[in-house]
Design a protein around this nucleic acid. Structure first.
Length: 504
RNA sequence: GCGCCUGUAGCUCAGCGGAAGAGCGGCGGACUUCUAAUCCGUUGGUCGGGGGUUCGAAUCCCUCCAGGCGCGCCA
């Protein structure tokens, strides 16, 4: 059990009531604080401050607690002993690289598919897909770290109008002709024209290369034509009816705002018919299916949930994560993105400009609900100020300390009689990591990781500045603290797909 | 018209029931030191407006305003 939870449990047992702990911003408010008295006051029918006094007296007797004070409307502020801090560090060291991992109980661990990116292979990935990849992959990494079995899948269209137009554009180029109306243009079309055969597999190879470079690994690739084979069978399992010659699925029976056509009056299946067939796949092979879609697809949530309810028995087995769009600014002007308009920034261009680390950090750092604007002209300049380097520098510094300390240096020791404020802050920050990961995983909010990592980096840099590590009496103790920080910061970086450099 | 998302410091954004935050920018300091890609100080906010729920609201509910994105027998 993480040290904060354990402390909370001890406090609760001692007080005879549930105690939740929070971290005050102000050091004068103690190492931890609890609002338990405020919550209990109504049911105990006592003034909050009076209850807080009793609570403080009880909690003050615990070995982990140096002193307990009442403050404000009825908060109890707790100051902890060095031995508590020592145990906390020992726990982080014992867990090593897995500190905070596996927060999901064995019985609740699930097989989860995260379907991400899934852009039509009609061109290189854009920065819009980059956000999908960065967000979806970070969610996948979090769920995996939490204890689930996660598979990342890319679904691609390999037939249909758009793909025909794409193939025709490449063929036209090969014949030295202009592309058809609404065709695709760009340097990549010229490159594809130089290769033999169907351009779609070539494009997919390039997309996979871009994703690998972006550190997004796709476990499986699902082609739409294979799914389409299963449409007739799949439709038998859902509630359909025929009207005006077309076949409809009664998605409104499960919360959708209108029923959806699956077979046109011509008999041709719609795109949504393939979604129905694909849903069978997902719910057959996985306990839970997660879609990662741009905000322009938010209208799909209702129908996907509806067919999940029909096929999988519950709409809860499907989750649709929506992220807001990425807009481009050029010289302060908003530019509409589109592959066919040629007005687009490719993922590879973004990586060339600012690097994988800055790009992934930048795209995950903002919550999915936030629209992102990238000023192409400022991207490079901004990347130099990207907080990712501030966080990576922590890792480089810890590595430097161990290089200097040498192979045989003792790492970890009991705490000294008094701790510097910077040491206390750093340790408390480390203790919060398990709760941060758990919360981020549950809420599918990977942006919590960069936010936390910056706070941790802040505490480490301050510690490094104020507390000499090597060649002092507390060296072994402080090296333990450095190792613990190194483990946690490396994990944070990995969870968002950023490298942890040994030198900078 | 209906639906989803957003509105917090000059800028970009975290926080989403418990004592208003970070980065960047601005201003002023700290390298003979385990990496200054660092640190310290300072500047800066009626958390879009108005109601409500609560001991307590940036956070939950209602409403209004502003912006983004959607509402095909397209893919």
């Amino acid at each position: 059990m993480p040290s904060i939870e354990r402390l909370a449990a001890e406090l609760s047992a001692s007080a005879g009531a549930p105690i939740e702990l929070s971290r005050p911003n102000d050091a004068a408010h103690g190492d931890f604080a609890t609002n338990a008295a405020l919550k209990l006051a109504p049911q105990r029918k006592l003034p909050p401050r009076e209850l807080a006094q009793e609570l403080a007296a009880t909690l003050g007797l615990l070995p982990a607690v140096e002193r307990a004070e009442v403050a404000g409307p009825g908060f109890v502020n707790l100051f902890l002993t060095p031995s508590w801090f020592g145990e906390a560090v020992a726990e982080v060291l014992a867990a090593g690289a897995d500190y905070g991992a596996g927060c999901v109980p064995a019985a609740e661990r699930a097989r989860i598919q995260v379907e991400l990116v899934s852009a039509n292979p009609t061109g290189p990935l854009t920065v819009g897909s980059a956000r999908n990849g960065a967000y979806g992959d970070a969610v996948a990494r979090l769920l995996r770290y939490a204890g689930h079995t996660v598979s990342e899948e890319y679904y691609f269209n390999d037939s249909g109008t758009q793909m025909d137009r794409f193939r025709e554009s490449v063929d036209a180029r090969r014949r030295g002709e202009e592309p058809p109306a609404d065709g695709y243009v760009g340097a990549y079309i010229d490159d594809l024209a130089k290769l033999e055969g169907d351009p779609v597999p070539h494009m997919l190879t390039a997309i996979e290369a871009s994703l690998e470079r972006f550190r997004v690994h796709i476990d499986s690739w699902q082609k739409q034509t294979a799914i389409e084979q299963e449409i007739p069978e799949a439709l038998k399992a859902v509630d359909t009816y025929v009207e005006e010659g077309a076949t409809w699925v009664r998605t409104t029976a499960h919360g959708d705002d209108k029923d959806r056509v699956v077979l046109r009056s011509t008999g041709e299946p719609t795109y949504f018919a393939a979604d129905v067939a694909y849903m069978h796949h997902k719910l057959r092979d996985f306990d839970r299916a997660i879609y990662v879609l741009g905000a322009d697809h938010h209208g799909y949530v209702g129908r996907l949930k509806a067919i999940a309810a029909m096929i999988g028995g519950s709409s809860d087995r499907v989750e649709v994560l929506i992220y807001q769009l990425v807009h481009l600014l050029r010289g302060g002007e908003k530019a509409r993105m589109g592959k066919r308009s040629g007005n687009v920034v490719f993922l590879d261009d973004l990586i060339d400009e600012i690097g994988v680390d800055a790009a992934r950090w930048y795209l995950v750092e903002r919550g999915p609900d936030q629209t992102i604007e990238i000023d192409v002209d400022l991207a490079v300049e901004k990347s130099r100020k990207n907080p990712v380097y501030y966080v990576q520098y922590v890792h480089a510094r810890t590595c430097g300390l161990f290089r200097e300390a040498g192979e045989g240096a003792l790492v970890g020791a009991p705490p000294p009689a008094t701790l510097a404020p910077e040491e206390r802050d750093l340790i408390k920050q480390l203790c919060e990591f398990p709760a941060v990961v758990k919360d981020a995983a549950e809420r599918r909010s990977p942006q919590a990781i960069p936010t936390y990592a910056i706070r941790l980096a802040d505490d480490f840099h301050r510690f490094y500045h104020e507390c000499r590590v090597l060649g002092v009496e507390e060296q072994a103790w402080r090296l333990g603290l450095v190792r613990a920080t190194q483990n946690v910061i490396a994990r944070c970086l990995d969870l968002v797909g950023v490298e942890a450099p040994e030198r900078m």
